[in-house]
């Protein structure tokens, strides 16, 4: 399969803190790649580099062969119509109702009429299982539960029918039934829309369930990339310790 996103020899630091050093990773067309690793190691940074919200200090981040850091304003705008991101807390716009949140990209990038935007917003909400209550469109984000906010954020990300969706810890802070629901949604979107997905998560059951491949961030790069089955049966101590939640001696 062809790589849609490639990170080659990437280095990234924030002040004295080096997050990535000679990091390589490829996301293949149509797959769901899950990124795992300890808290604060830079998994979200990796995603933000993929969508051009952050840029690598060294190396290359390529989307379909194009170097992301070399894209101009219009190039980045075009990239972000093809690559959508679901943020950890949902990042819904507090000042807008759900209809305007979900339809934001449509208002920004298309000349669709108000009615068509409302219809498309409703369709997206229906896809994420929020199609029972039409009144939801007029509600404000603050009135939604954590699980609903995440699902609305996913609905917002699919409004423009992107090729790739980046999920930044989509299950964090949710109860087990909502975690399962979000996992099912990721699988459903991959199946029905054919999107390529990159999922950052700490939740190993979700990672095993939704992934075609898993990449583990360890010591500023991804030394372990394998299928879920490979990860389950790995003999590599660092990987086993992480997925079984073991603490290393002296750590």
């Amino acid at each position: 399969m062809a790589a849609v996103i490639e990170l080659q020899g990437v280095g990234k630091s924030f002040g004295d803190h080096t997050v990535y050093q000679d990091m390589h990773l490829a996301v293949e067309e149509g797959e769901t790649l899950t990124v795992i690793g300890g808290s604060g190691q830079g998994k979200s940074v990796c995603m933000k580099m993929m969508i051009g919200l952050l840029f690598a200090d060294e190396g290359e981040v390529r989307f379909r062969g194009a170097e992301v850091s070399e894209l101009d304003h219009e190039g980045l705008r075009a990239l972000r119509q093809k690559v959508a991101m679901v943020f950890q807390g949902g990042a819904l716009f507090d000042s807008m109702n759900i209809r305007d949140n979900v339809g934001y990209a449509l208002i920004e990038h298309t000349s669709m009429a108000d009615e068509a935007i409302t219809a498309r917003a409703w369709e997206c909400l229906d896809m994420v299982g929020l199609g029972q209550d039409r009144g939801l469109l007029e509600r404000m984000p603050v009135s939604l539960s954590g699980g609903m906010r995440k699902r609305v954020a996913i609905a917002r990300s699919i409004a423009l029918q992107p090729e790739i969706i980046l999920y930044d810890e989509p299950t964090t802070g949710l109860d087990p039934s909502n975690i399962r629901r979000i996992g099912s949604m990721i699988l459903k979107l991959q199946k029905e829309l054919g999107v390529t997905s990159v999922v950052v998560t700490h939740d190993m059951p979700t990672a095993f369930r939704v992934s075609n491949r898993i990449a583990m961030l360890y010591e500023r790069h991804f030394p372990f990339v394998d299928t879920p089955e490979g990860f389950k049966h790995t003999e590599v101590p660092e990987v086993r310790n992480f997925i079984q939640g073991r603490v290393r001696d002296g750590a």
Binding site: K48, I51, L53, H73, L76, R77, A78, R80, Q81, A84, M85, F87, Q88, G89, A91, L92, F93, D94, Y104, A105, E108, H109, R156
Partner: peptide, 18 residues
């Protein structure tokens, strides 16, 4: 500042707006 810490500004950029 509140929009920044709740990643709403990044969300605007990620949706292709400036």
């Amino acid at each position: 500042g509140s929009m920044k810490v709740s990643e709403q500004i990044d969300a605007i950029a990620s949706l292709g707006a400036d």
